[in-house]
């Protein structure tokens, strides 16, 4: 179902520091004016935007064109042509039902994801710091990673019925293992030398958390969040299909029962669009904003 293209502007990896004179500070402020980090190295913003968007636009053109070709050739009611899908799409967007369903689904995902996130932060950090905790939770994480989201969805429907607990627990169970693993690895990768520095300069616990732990773990937290969210979307739709009477998954199931392929497609496309906005728009821009100090190294 995924029609979301991977953008090419993801990389925020630290580039090797630009070669600089051995120690300009000793030679005085001679080079300060010319060495101010300018924007001269970057291409014009308009052209860069075209370059970034063009391949994705081409992909969608090929997809829509190909779909239309297949639909017109097959002449089957189960393969609706592009104008039919488009009108179903605009119908869905104009219904209040869409926004109610989306709101319900997002609330469930939000709560479940928050639960998973908090658990994963506590367990992941503990695993990274304490050998016993690592050995204790390792099998749990492994099992959690291998159990399909569908199984969690089924089990939670059986155990919790139509209450809000059902989707929240199902989402938490599917997202937590991957998140925990990511945070555990982030904790392991933390620089022990900086901990020594924090010790000799008598950093308080709050200072350490705010200025050492949080920034060190941030990449792991964000990549874990993206992974966890993408797993959450997949399981929430299943839970809503089987066990809920509202939400995007429930509406999808209705369209499926009515054999309305255009309806299934329009709900899927809209849902995917919202998720893409959340993942690429919100999370990625957050990552860029918080990684400013890395960017500074590349100019």
């Amino acid at each position: 179902m995924s029609t979301v293209p991977r953008h090419t502007t993801v990389s925020t990896a630290p580039a090797p520091a630009a070669p600089s004179p051995p120690d300009p500070a000793a030679t005085g402020p001679t080079g300060s004016a010319s060495s101010a980090p300018g924007r001269r190295g970057r291409p014009a913003p308009g052209r860069a935007a075209v370059r970034a968007v063009l391949p994705a636009a081409a992909f969608f053109a090929v997809l829509v064109g190909g779909w239309q070709l297949v639909a017109s050739r097959s002449d089957n009611v189960l393969v609706p042509d592009v104008p039919t899908v488009w009108s179903a799409l605009s119908d869905t967007v104009t219904q209040p039902l869409f926004y109610d369903s989306l709101g319900a689904t997002l609330l469930r995902v939000g709560l479940g994801f928050a639960l998973a996130f908090v658990t994963a932060v506590v367990v992941g950090i503990a695993m990274g710091r304490v050998e016993f905790v690592r050995r204790f939770f390792e099998p749990a994480v492994l099992i959690g990673l291998t159990v399909p989201g569908l199984v969690w969805a089924l089990l939670c429907v059986i155990w919790f019925g139509v209450s809000l607990t059902n989707p929240v627990v199902a989402v938490a169970l599917s997202a937590a293992p991957a998140l925990t693993l990511s945070i555990y690895q982030g904790t392991r990768a933390m620089d022990s030398e900086l901990h020594e520095m924090a010790y000799v300069y008598r950093f308080s616990l709050t200072t350490k958390l705010r200025y050492l732990w949080l920034p060190s773990l941030l990449p792991a937290l964000l990549s874990g969040a993206r992974l966890g969210l993408s797993l959450s979307w997949k399981v929430i739709v299943l839970v809503e299909m089987f066990g809920m009477s509202s939400g995007v998954g429930y509406e999808l199931n209705n369209q499926f029962a009515a054999q309305n392929v255009a309806g299934v497609l329009s709900w899927t496309l809209l849902f995917a669009l919202v998720m893409a906005v959340l993942e690429y728009g919100v999370l990625q821009s957050l990552e860029r904003r918080l990684g400013r100090w890395r960017k500074a190294a590349t100019v």
Binding site: S20, D23, P29, W293, A296, A297
Partner: peptide, 30 residues
């Protein structure tokens, strides 16, 4: 330590010598 004009930069844009100067400044500042 001669880093007055670099005070508001991130360490990653400084040279190795400048970074070590900053470490020396920190050690003597306390």
């Amino acid at each position: 330590v001669g880093l007055a004009q670099y005070a508001d930069r991130y360490p990653s844009v400084l040279s190795g010598g400048q970074r070590q100067r900053a470490a020396v400044a920190r050690a003597f500042a306390v």
